[in-house]
Structures are given as C-alpha cells and as structure tokens.
Design a protein around this nucleic acid. Sequence first.
DNA 1: CGACTAGTTGACATGAATCAAAACCTGTGG
DNA 2: CCACAGGTTTTGATTCATGTCAACTAGTCG
Lengths: 243, 243
Amino acid sequence: MLMQKNTAFETIKGSVNDIAGQMSLKSLFHSIPQEVLQAGKALFWEGDATSHLFELAEGVIRLYRIIGDGRRVITAFLYPGDLVGTSLQERYLYTAEAVTDCKVRRIARKNFHDEISRSACLRPDFISLLCQEMAAAHDQMVLLSKKNAEERLCSFLLQLISREMTNAAGDLVTLPMNRLDIADYLGLTIETVSRTISKLAGRNVLVPTGRHDIKILSLKRLIQLSGNGDDFSLEKSHSCSIH
Amino acid sequence: MLMQKNTAFETIKGSVNDIAGQMSLKSLFHSIPQEVLQAGKALFWEGDATSHLFELAEGVIRLYRIIGDGRRVITAFLYPGDLVGTSLQERYLYTAEAVTDCKVRRIARKNFHDEISRSACLRPDFISLLCQEMAAAHDQMVLLSKKNAEERLCSFLLQLISREMTNAAGDLVTLPMNRLDIADYLGLTIETVSRTISKLAGRNVLVPTGRHDIKILSLKRLIQLSGNGDDFSLEKSHSCSIH
DNA sequence: CGACTAGTTGACATGAATCAAAACCTGTGG
DNA sequence: CCACAGGTTTTGATTCATGTCAACTAGTCG
C-alpha cells in the first residue's frame, strides 16, 4: 500500500518542467536580469498593448479576466519556468498578477518574435508551447463544464502535484494562493472550496495542515476522485511531447 | 428604435470570416478537392495520431471530448472557412464530428507545417490563428465559469450571429445543431436550454420558429443579457486583428 | 498578545438537474 | 394527402448541489 503510494507519486512528478520545447525557448531569457514583482502587483493588465513577454523565474502568477459586474475568472496559474504572454496578439486578453512575490525576466514582444522567426529550431518549440496552452485550456473547459466540486478540487490538487508544488517527500502540497483564488479558478465559491476540503479530510483522502498546506493521505483516491476517467498519467502526457 | 436595431446587426456581422490571417493560410487548400463528410460521421477521433489538417468548406463540425462515464463536452463548433486541427501536436485531443453534411479539404500535417516554416509570410498568420483559438477558449472558460443559463444562451446566439448563421436580413438565426449539442457546449442540459429559450421568448427577446431557427426580436436585449459586461463589439475585436 | 483577515461551519435559498409525461416535428407508407 | 411511428423538444414536478448570508474560529503579523 505504501509502496503503491510512492510509485504513484513518482509517476506524476517531474513531467512538466523538463519539456524540450520550453527548454530552448527559455534560453532566450538566460542573460536577462531578473525583476522583482511583489505579491498582489500586476505584471500587465487585460486590454493593454502587448509590449513584453515574461519568463517566471520564481513565484506564482494568476491570469484572470473580469466580466461585467465584478465577477473574476482565473483562467490559469503560472509556476516557475512558465512563460507569460506567449499566446497573445496586439492586446493582453487577461491580467497577470503576482500571487506570491515573484521574480521575472522580460523580453520585448517584437524581439521574441524576431528570434522565433530567425531560428528554425525555436519555432516548433514555440508552436509546441502554444499547443500545450491550448490543451490546458481544453482541460479547464472540461473541468468547468462537467465536473462537480469534489472532482474540481481533486483535479486542482493533482495539477499542483504535477507542477511540483510539494515537499521533497511529495505528499505535502503547497497551495500558494488563497481560497478565493482557488474558487475563482475552479468556478466555485470559497465556501464550497472550504467545505469540499473538509469533506475530503473527513474521508481521509487528505489533511489540511495550515492555510497553505495540505497533506495527501491517498494519492490513489485523489486520482480516482478527480473524475479524469482514463488514468491520470494520460492527462499529463499531452502536455509533454518528448519523453 | 428599428433604426438602432439594424445598426446593431451591422455592427456584429461580417467580422470573422475575412480575417487576414486565415485568408492566406486558406490558400494552401485552394487546389485541393473537396471531400464529403456525412452528418454524424467523425473526421478524426480523440487520441488518434494527428495525420491531417482540414479546411471546412461547407457545413458545421463539433469538437468534443468524452470524460470518464459518458459525459461529453463540446469545446467548439466550427463553421465554413474554419481550419480544423491547427492547435494539435502528436495526437488529436478531441473528436471532430460533422453536425450537418460537410465538405472539407485535407492537408497532411507534415506538408502544412513544411509550408508554414518555408513561408515567412504564412507564419504570423498561423500564430495569429492559434491566438484566436486561444482567445475563443478563454471566452468559453468565462462562460462556463461565471455565466448563468440565460447569459450562456444569449452569448451562444450572438456567436452564431457573428458567424453569419443568419438569413439575409440578419434577424433569423439558424441553429444547425440539436439541443443536446447546444447543451453539451454550454455546460447545461437540454431541458435547461429549452426552458431558457422559452423564457426569452416569453420576454419577447426572440421567437423560436421551428427546431433549427430562431427569430431575434431585440438584438440589443440579447447583447445586454449575454453578460459580456463591456459592449459586445469588444468581444469580437480580439478575434480580428486587421480591421 | 491582540487585532485583523482568512477560513470554516451552519442554516437556508435557489438555479439547474433529474425524472416523467405531453407536444411537436419529420419522414414514411398506405 | 393523411395517418402513423420515430425521435426530438417542450413542459411540469421534484430533488439536489452549490450559492448566499451570517456567525464563529483560527492563522498571521504587527
């Protein structure tokens, strides 16, 4: 049982960051100095002209849109190693805001695209990156369209695990964002998020240990409860072309 | 009042098909013979190796994924002029199925990408297309995450209008798909879709005239009810870079 | 340590889902 | 041209999951 648990952890972890595509694209940012972005500060605003792309070196960023009255939809969280603003044209179509204190590297959009069109080997990586983003967007549509609160929460925790927001042992997940962020990402309310965590705790799937940490007791059950039908390892495979 | 109504129709229509990006990309398909795809038949299946890209010449196609038990999520409808399969890597990540009888043109994925990398002028168009798809996916996430049944339905009708699924006068909208398709696209049930249409009819926003046609009585109210906050013309602007 | 904010829990309301039945188109054969 | 059979859509009654409002509790930071 314990054995199995560890195997499962192995299966999920370490699959996203070492994607071939991102690796070489990221080399564009290597020599660029890091900028600090304080928690809560915006990197750019929805509707602004797309002047720069960014590499997130440290911290977590939320991308969101506000509709009509104050309703906020978080369309994605970005983690260290992610690029910000790749899938954008003339205008940013979401606001990017630091969830935690961040460090980012910046490239002018024009430079980035010049480099891409100059280098034939960077280009497939770039397209690959766009396709990964698209795949993630599809997953999110499925989640929002058909999953219940519990499935959403479990799917979210699995995302965090696959992005290695964990301790060394891999069973303690860090939630860098607060409940409202999670709610706005999962299309729920803070109360439902909270209740769902409690319910999972009551069934010994996990134990919340402080505001920003959850200990996973059974990764296997978490995967079952995520409603991803076919097994979870498939889920990540389409965000990882080499492997 | 009538004047205003007509103006509004003008504002929305004719904005999507003449996008610069798609125009030149589509030239790749010009000389290729059309294939017929019967209503209900699949063009390709989720999980299959991505062998071809397609241009939809005639008809309507649904893209969907099935999760776990039989839950189906339609992630997009495609209309004449759209390209199918652009944002894909090694494997199709959704099934593409004809809603109505269709005509399509086919290009091998490899050829398509060869052409793209050869022609420096096609490339920005391709990237532009991917970004448009991304923008549409974002809109859909917002819809699924925060809109109620009425807002979803109205948003959907506005999409159909902007894709010119209308008569010459522009006030009679054709719904090529059935209620179940609409429900699976909007994250609702057929009953809720049906009830919502009836409710809008009761308020003289529209009149259903047969299974596949709805007459719009007040486009202005439809826009207001779509919950797109800022006005609707903004909505389409980010899917149209030149104009 | 104390005050403030974030998170949890409870009671209740509600919009959409579910289950069931009636009405309706649509195509077919007499 | 009409009657019927099939599926699709609409409508109705009821249930249920999640939202809302409100009170309470627990972290966190000065």
